[in-house]
Amino acid sequence: MANKCCCNGRSRYFDKFDEILSKYEGKEADLIPILQNIQDAYGYLPQDILDELCNRTGLHPSQVMGVATFYSQFRLKPTGENLIKLCFGTACHVNGAEKVAEALADELKIEIGGTTEDGRFTLETVACLGCCSLAPVMMIGDETYGRLTPDKARKIIRGFYKNWGE
């Protein structure tokens, strides 16, 4: 989103996309890596970039959207400033991840998958973060928080807001 408001308008917005596309032949086998690169650069898969991808490569929109919606890594909407990845792996589940999820959803006043009104947080669940001995676990940005309880999870969120002075 922020990319779009740069003063030079359209052309600068597509710069990053042009650079990505120049690295690939644009064949079907490149589609997943191209989409991964777009998401890295833009934070999500913006519709206008996907349209441009179809125009430039000749890949059919049904192909591109088919792949973009099939794989859970891809998102078609931007996230909040901080992405909370709450682990819903088996080890976390048996150690009470669902209660942590409820506490987070309640604290942030959003549903799982949603973004807070102030745009600060997006709450997502993931299949397994792979640090099962710290279960239940969540990641906010690159930081991992382990051995969570509903109460501890709430306090972590409050800590963020406190730091921001809100």
């Binding site: 086998a29 490149d30 991964q36 794989y71 859970s72 890594q73």
Partner: peptide, 19 residues
Amino acid sequence: GAGAFVCGEETALLASIEG
């Protein structure tokens, strides 16, 4: 990969490599 459990199945995995 791009996050699809079914891609652990071998023919699905091959389809995914093919894009």
